[in-house]
Design a protein around this nucleic acid. Structure first.
Lengths: 263, 263
DNA sequence: AGTTTGGTTCGTCTATTACGAACAACAAAT
DNA sequence: ATTTGTTGTTCGTAATAGACGAACCAAACT
């Protein structure tokens, strides 16, 4: 086998096991043989990997076929509750959702991706039916308000690295797909203090975002409020929403600084 | 090293890597050396494991120390949304929370443990998931209403297996800690159709639970409603709440059967 | 019954991992 | 500034542990 890129030595066996996890995440459920062919390893080997993952309760064998264990949810919960921005941001975000009756998000960055830590929809009192949250939890940063707010808070070379590795794929006709254009946008976000997403991710949806910094000035992530373009307009889009958002972010930052001493 | 218990052959390297994950989950953040001593492996080896996990984005190196990656949250989300009971139960549970203004839970079982997939408190507005002061996401089954409802739906030998491996630890003075007593309790739950938790997990808290079965009759998990004993009393505790709960469970089961054909 | 598909087990060879020592980076202390 | 201590990273090497494939089962389907 070819060692893709040798920075640090990495454990092959573990890598394939983790690829098993990813594979199970993509294809909801897999048998031994199918997994083996998919990863191009022997059947016996695939079996061994699955057995190990099962033993450690990351995978479970439900009537002959393997799938990710619900126990993984435990890990996810832990990780989220560990997150500073989530800890201090949730209550503010709930409040924002109440006030604006739109979607509000808490997003954090990792390896150049935006991860949706929390999402809540304010009550629009539509017949008591509740919206489903989108399954996608890991997004490019350049076509969301929260993502752009984060990018605007990063140094230019870090942004370039991210573009380098993740690209600037197009989602709608409004998506910014050129590096130069993106940098101009980031500049104006910095001047403005908050970011816009004008139907750049989803047609018909606008959003406003702003970054949140930790005690040391490091970027913890961002908040965003999004809703249909029909609603996100005029003063609301230009002033009220951004104001509320910035305010919430400030409150969070203050709270974060208060607890700085504890850490 | 000693092979603990050789049923199927299991990959040692992978095992230790997964132990690294667990270790990071327990101790929020660890350095290479500390991890090495904790797992009793060499420093270089610990480093290799961390490097691999980092490469696969399950672990991240924040200023010199390693911690679980937020990306794990992605997996957790996926797993939950994959869950049949969650898919069909969430809206009903939200409604229950609204009606009863108490805590409502969706719990599922895995390897003899109860996993809290969703939890919402009525009165507070519907929408997000509310984690209260309960970081614990994996619980014994014998001292919760949801857990007992699940156990009551299992065959006796399966219950015995679970007791065998997980034990019957005491949480309060009301916790059932003897096997015989537990089996009697399960019997009366079966007759009654729903379970009670009378301050068996937490002093001052009562709960009512009921199992939910899938199209094939298999136990998918359970729902429960819990609240302070001062509130959970009289008719409410004996009739209203159980009725509502059972009703919600029935609705879910009907919905599940409707979608049976799709699968 | 016979055939096919997929799951599990096992012996063996070789590739990989774990080790330890050496090196580097950084802090604290003298 | 120099030393000492601590922790992270790299690398060569011996020996262990993983991957293979063949053989064995168990169902499902014909």
């Amino acid at each position: 086998m070819v060692d893709t890129d040798n920075k640090t030595r990495t454990l092959q066996t573990v890598s394939t096991s983790l690829e098993v996890l990813s594979e199970l995440k993509e294809n909801d459920t897999l048998g031994v043989t199918e997994l083996a062919t998919r990863l191009d390893i022997s059947k016996s080997s695939a079996h061994a990997h699955l057995a190990t993952l099962e033993d450690k309760e990351l995978v479970i064998n439900r009537n002959g076929t393997y799938e990710l264990a619900v126990n993984l949810f435990t890990f996810g919960q832990y990780v989220r509750e560990q997150n500073l921005l989530y800890q201090h941001g949730k209550s503010q975000v709930d409040k924002l959702a109440d006030e604006t009756s739109q979607y509000v998000h808490i997003v954090t960055e990792e390896n150049g991706w935006g991860i949706n830590l929390y999402q809540i929809k304010g009550e629009t009192r539509v017949g008591g039916d509740y919206q489903q949250n989108k399954p996608q939890r890991r997004d490019h940063l350049h076509y969301t308000a929260s993502g752009k707010a984060i990018l605007a808070a990063f140094p230019a070379d870090r942004v370039r690295e991210i573009i380098e590795s993740n690209g600037l794929p197009k989602r709608t006709s409004n998506t910014i797909t050129s590096e130069r254009e993106l940098f101009e946008e980031l500049e104006s976000i910095r001047e403005r203090g908050y970011s816009y997403n004008d139907e750049e991710e989803i047609e018909g949806f606008r959003a406003v975002g702003t970054a949140v910094r930790g005690p040391g000035g490091e970027v913890l992530g961002s908040l965003s409020i999004s809703g249909p373009t029909s609603f996100m307009q005029g003063d609301r889009y230009k002033e009220t929403i951004p104001e509320r958002l910035i305010n919430a972010a400030n409150v969070i930052e203050v709270n974060l600084n208060m607890n700085k001493s504890d850490r």
